[in-house]
Design a binder for these strands. Structure first.
Lengths: 252, 252
DNA sequence: GCTGACGTACTTGTATGGTAGCCGACCGAC
DNA sequence: GTCGGTCGGCTACCATACAAGTACGTCAGC
């Protein structure tokens, strides 16, 4: 992959190595490129990305703070399994903040806000037609972010985004059901319509049920991919991957 | 100060140096021991705490993520000034999450939950009698945390706590008005009463007005201590402290 | 006195070395 | 066959060294 070169190429654009590595890793984890439970070694990542261990380590500390990796000193760092508690917590946070923002946005959102939201809806429909799941995910993220921005609380979005990351890992597995996309888009449209009409309570209810649908998806996924989840309060056995690197030696 | 020794003494108790340093710094910043705008040098802190730059640096990165310090590469790290935007954002987040939790807690909180909250109320009154501001701050924090826990969303508390940190820095200056304490305690009691009575809407309204009172305090403080605040979107002139360390040499 | 170039001392960013601790495989004892 | 000790290799943690860059004091020139 060109991630190593891309890293240094983009580095000149103001962001330092730590931030670059952080973004790369976060993207890989949320995008399930790095599966829950898999080990992420400072050394391996540093070697792969062509940087030293320091920025990698600092990124991992930030990711641990976000709940995306678990660091066990002297044992290893592992992509965190999806925990029942974390998902419920993330859903609660997201619902509370997005709905509260929407309630404030009603009567405050400008015509321009609504117009920009509708542009995103159109783009989402296009992504649906092309079965572009990755594109839809990004547009979905932007839609919800702008919805919050319309309330004047754009600066609270990072908090939602962080909570959302926990949910998105699971959602990534569920969405292949393409029919879901059009359903979600319809709900988006309903929210925008009600926002424009100034119907506060129905807009709130609409967004809330939309978010809960997403939440219920996660539960379905759990049945299909239990290995990505963790019930335990003490998942203290991440188990080191015993595939020795001597395998490349081919002895034997 | 015994902070350096205390650091290593407590280190054996499971937490590593990074976490210890993080807690110390966070406490100093929220407690205004480190004033907004003041410089915090990795080297100086490392020397003072008797550790290397690494854990200090990692702590500062976490604090920057929390919005408590601003890191300017090759320039310095400074305790962030209180920004209008951050305070408003923190208030929005806190209000949305705490009120949403309270609404869920109504009808769900056990008798034991209520009893434990009342114990805290009693302790707060005692702190008031003794004019123990520091104690009251801790009891206030615990009260709100337990209130959220009663809703079953204790794991969402760290998010509130982080937002609260922005508000607390300013509050710390306002509370010396001792009469405020009893007022706040009365509001706490009202919330618990309404929670126990199962009066959802009035409990919500009561907590909301309580939180807004706290918020309005911040505005008063701004008038008295403008140097701790920052309107600027680009406060790009933190200005290095020009007090040379050669002062200790005593030459001249 | 004022202005501008320069040098020094500081800053954070990155790279690397050494340490303590844990896991898991191996191997001898029973 | 089963259990217990040992040892190798890995881990994250912390310390340290080097690099890139900024700000400020100093001083020469005007």
């Amino acid at each position: 992959m060109a991630s190593a070169e891309g890293l240094h190429a983009a580095r000149s654009r103001g962001r330092n190595t730590r931030q670059l590595v952080h973004e790369v890793l976060r993207s890989r984890i949320v995008g399930l490129e790095l599966e829950p439970g898999s080990a992420v070694s400072e050394n391996d990542l540093a070697a792969e990305l062509g940087v030293s261990r320091t920025p990698v380590r600092e990124s991992l500390i930030l990711l641990a703070d976000e709940g995306l990796v678990d660091i066990y000193p002297q044992m290893g760092t592992f992509v965190s399994r999806i925990r029942e508690r974390d998902v419920a917590s993330a859903q609660f946070i997201r619902e509370a903040l997005e709905c509260a923002a929407l309630r404030e946005a009603v009567g405050k959102a400008t015509a321009r806000d609504v117009a920009e939201l509708r542009v995103l809806l159109t783009a989402q429909e296009e992504a649906d037609r092309q079965s572009d799941m990755e594109g839809f995910f990004q547009l979905d993220e932007e839609f919800h972010a702008r919805l919050m921005a319309a309330s004047g609380h754009a600066s609270a979005w990072p908090v939602v985004s962080q909570a959302k990351a926990q949910l998105d890992r699971a959602r990534r597995l569920s969405l292949p059901l393409t029919q879901q996309m059009s359903l979600l888009i319809g709900q988006h449209r309903e929210v925008v319509d009600l926002l424009e009409q100034g119907d506060l309570d129905r807009a709130d209810a609409s967004l809330r049920s939309h978010l809960r649908l997403v939440f219920s998806d996660v539960e379905k996924i759990r049945a299909k991919h239990p290995e990505l989840f963790s019930d335990e309060d003490t998942p203290l056995k991440p188990r080191r991957d015993s595939a020795r690197r001597t395998a490349s030696r081919g002895d034997g």
